[in-house]
Design a protein around this nucleic acid. Structure first.
Lengths: 238, 238
DNA sequence: GAGTGGTCTAGACCACGTA
DNA sequence: ACGTGGTCTAGACCACTCA
């Protein structure tokens, strides 16, 4: 029917994302049924279905036959480590977490650029370790815009039982949809080596990540240093 | 209509892949029209379309509106570097290639396992460099089962103008569909350092790849060592 | 049993590429 | 002008979940 540029299913997809960005449905909630959405958007069920197909492929929503369509969440055990590609060579899974610090700071030029902030805008800086047994495997540094994560503190992080992304979702209503990573091999700095219990200069996998919430708004910059002696970063190429 | 386990569109998808594996259509060829396929598989056009949707998403086929549906190829410039995730920090693209050797060998236990061969089955071993300007950025070692790549030689590789995957496709009718990679940071061995013009112990990104052809049959094992001083490996997380 | 998503069909009309 | 894929609709029937 519409002569406009984008096909109807694409417009509907965007309208659903906009509603998610505004918080009309929260992670874990059920969306209206396909028939109800079709009525709301004045489209046929098949067209709505196509929009939901794409959102399902992008892990924005999740369908459960017989039950409904639900907003994707990082709270569910299934999706807890969706963005962590590091796996042990022997298949072991799961890490113990240890917070190093959580403090207020000002955005560096690099952070500001990545997160679309003004330079020296307030950010929250988090550093933590991921450990297996007594060995530290990952050193993560995070930068978060304070305007989205006001009040985040070491206490809050330490008290929360789930992953950081689950915490961000539950407490700050910021749901991470996708991320872009840039990987490099680097030599461990003295500081990183000491935190990871290695010798300076040891090879580390550096993973720079920018994570995006609904509408492709960048809301987290993260730099991970992975000690890949008994672990590897797995990737699928299509 | 069928009560069998898999939905009809999935069965059709598999039948199309089987036909591709048997060489009924070669990379670059046009498939029959959706209507013709519907008739062939005794299904409705919508069902065939769904099968083609999935094959399109997997980059197995490519649709061109008004023209038809074509078997995906590594020959086309668009897809030449589909599996190379390494990009220069400044956006520069493209490498010069330099063959180090191409020789017959026997599969190691590791190679045999990755490629589903018997240990010490004949394989072809290729080593090459990728360079930008005068700087070597990548050292690649490849292992290929001789039974799929009989006669591959340094001459053949050096004479062929396109990528290795395009060569494999044109000359050996082996089309790479997808790949799995495992990444690590490692210290450069003396040999690798010398080939890449670095000092021993320099941090390198090690990329182990197994590439699969139609029907998930592994046909290439590759170990790349990437010098990531002015380049990075980019990845999208969904 | 009522309601949900999953599959499959049938057909209309449009946009595009080729010649 | 023709044939191709792209969009959109309408409806039937099935499989599953949950009260």
């Amino acid at each position: 029917m519409p002569k406009s540029a984008a096909p109807l299913y694409e417009q509907i997809r965007q309208l659903i994302v906009a509603a998610l960005a505004e918080g009309e449905w929260r992670p874990g909630d059920a969306l209206p049924s396909e028939a109800a959405l079709a009525e709301r958007f004045h489209a046929s069920p098949g067209t709505v279905r196509r929009a939901l197909d794409e959102l399902t492929a992008a892990h924005v929503v999740e369908r459960r036959q017989g039950a409904g369509t639900f907003v994707a969440t990082h709270t569910a055990p299934r999706d807890a480590y969706r963005f962590l590609r590091l796996v042990a060579d022997d298949g072991t899974v799961g890490f113990r977490r240890e917070l190093v610090h959580c403090r207020r700071a000002r955005a560096s030029a690099e952070t500001a650029r990545a997160l679309h902030l003004r330079t020296s805008e307030p950010v929250i800086e988090v550093r933590r370790l991921l450990l297996r047994g007594e060995r530290a495997v990952v050193l993560d540094d995070l930068w978060l815009p304070e305007r989205h994560f006001a009040g985040l503190s070491a206490e809050i992080i330490n008290e929360y039982p789930g992953t950081l992304y689950a915490l961000f979702e539950e407490r700050y209503r910021v749901h991470m949809v996708r991320a872009e990573e840039k990987l490099r091999a680097v030599a461990a700095s003295a500081e990183a080596a000491s935190l990871l219990g290695l010798q300076g200069g040891a090879p580390l996998l550096s993973v720079d990540r920018v994570a995006f919430t609904y509408g492709d708004r960048p809301v987290e910059l993260r730099r991970g240093l992975y000690h890949t002696e008994a672990d590897h970063y797995r990737n699928q190429l299509n």
